[in-house]
């Protein structure tokens, strides 16, 4: 069995900024527990001598030159804004500090 608990799921909901209901927490705890039990088997073969692959096709040094492009107009920037004022996006009061 994995260690998925309702408290852990609640904490993950905070990290992922999803306001989970108690019912969801309960349901997700059971589902994640079963899923994690199944996928945890990756560690069986992932021995230290095996390198990790983060890109399926290995490339490196992919750059763009320092020339302007892809600029959006202010209207395009704001065209989907749920709320804006003064050419900027408006959000309600922020509780936390910046990182």
């Amino acid at each position: 069995m994995s260690e998925i608990t309702p408290d852990l799921v609640r904490h993950l909901g905070v990290l992922a900024r999803i306001q989970l209901s108690d019912g969801e927490v309960e349901r997700l705890t059971g589902q994640l527990d079963a899923i994690v039990d199944n996928i945890a088997k990756v560690s069986e073969v992932a021995t230290p001598d095996v390198p990790a692959t983060s890109h399926p096709i290995a490339l490196e040094n992919v750059f763009r030159s320092d020339v302007p492009g892809d600029l959006l107009t202010p209207a395009q920037v704001l065209q989907n804004a749920p709320d804006s004022a003064d050419g900027r996006f408006r959000v309600t009061a922020i509780l936390g500090e910046e990182q």
Binding site: L15, V42, S43, A46, T53
Partner: peptide, 21 residues
Amino acid sequence: TYALSAGYYDAYYGSAQKVRT
């Protein structure tokens, strides 16, 4: 979010990337 959490990364995401290899 769980798979990337501190303390689980190596066992999960890291191991999964090894399975890719």
